[in-house]
């Protein structure tokens, strides 16, 4: 009886997961006339720099998320239980807003005559910089938008909760007795963290890295809005093949397929770091 219950799910998987992947594979290996070819893959070679840039920015965003997210999750897990839910809500709050809206908001903050630059002008920082650093070619604003930094900022802002939540979830489940046992065996608080808490939180870290890195490496909205679209990421490239003027679904599929493989590879390497300690870490694969 239980078996039948799973059928709708099976059908759903077939239609919405398996079929699209097969379709992507089919497109990737055919040309416009439908004949088998590897041409889509060879023509991708000219885009290696875009791949490199995407992985670099996503990597940077992941590192920043980890550096910000881990302490945040750690501090949160130490708060009295009543407050923990409140902090959790604060972290989730931005996610209730539309993704596009959030990103556009950053646009108006970072623009050349946006919030930050206006503020810097008003308090005279720009003038100060001009007199100090470059009196010969004065600037009117700091170039904030349309930079790699702005893209990373956008990624961090949007994906930080995906880093905090899995780490927090693992941290609050660590048995307090283990911390006491470590203290009992002579560990001051630093050693307790290094030798017990951090290793035990690895599954959360791995999950967090995965959940930030994967959407970051394939995003296109963020790079379009905050990166100005002049330096494309893989997401933009794929977007262009399906929606843009470069219309070429075959190439788009091939790129998507290669990226899938690369992401898969990254995750595989990630999980090797986690060997032994947390079996849960592998669940995401």
């Amino acid at each position: 009886m239980k078996k039948y219950m799973a059928y709708p799910y099976g059908v759903w998987m077939l239609i919405f997961i398996i079929a699209p992947i097969l379709l992507v594979v089919y497109y990737a290996f055919t040309d416009k006339s439908g004949a088998l070819t590897l041409g889509n893959f060879t023509s991708m070679l000219s885009y290696t720099s875009i791949f490199g840039r995407s992985f670099l920015l996503a990597f940077a965003a992941t590192v920043v998320c980890l550096l910000l997210g881990y302490p945040l999750a750690y501090i949160m897990s130490k708060q009295p239980p009543r407050w923990q839910n409140f902090y959790m809500m604060l972290i989730m709050l931005p996610m209730w807003m539309n993704f596009l809206l959030r990103t556009y908001a950053w646009m108006s903050i970072l623009e050349n005559n946006g919030f930050i630059n206006q503020f810097l002008q008003n308090i005279g920082v720009i003038r100060l910089l001009n007199t100090l650093l470059r009196p010969e070619a004065p600037i009117e604003y700091l170039p904030l938008i349309n930079t790699g930094g702005a893209v990373v900022l956008g990624m961090v802002y949007n994906f930080l909760p995906f880093m905090v939540l899995p780490i927090y979830n693992v941290l609050i489940k660590i048995d307090k007795k283990l911390i006491e046992a470590a203290q009992d065996l002579g560990a001051p608080s630093g050693a307790v963290f290094r030798k017990v808490i951090f290793p035990l939180s690895m599954p959360g870290v791995i999950a967090g890295i995965t959940m930030v890195f994967v959407p970051a490496v394939s995003t296109f909205v963020i790079s379009k809005t905050l990166g100005g679209g002049k330096e494309m990421l893989i997401g933009d490239l794929i977007d262009l093949q399906f929606m843009g003027n470069a219309y070429n679904p075959q190439l788009g599929s091939a790129i998507a397929l290669v990226m899938m493989a690369l992401v898969f590879l990254c995750m595989l390497i990630m999980n090797r770091f986690d060997d032994g300690s947390g079996e849960e870490g592998g669940l995401l694969l």
Binding site: D175, K177, L178, E180, A181, A182, V196, P199, L200, M202, G276, S277, G278
Partner: peptide
Amino acid sequence: QRYALFPH
């Protein structure tokens, strides 16, 4: 009371 061995 319940051992508290380090699982990792």
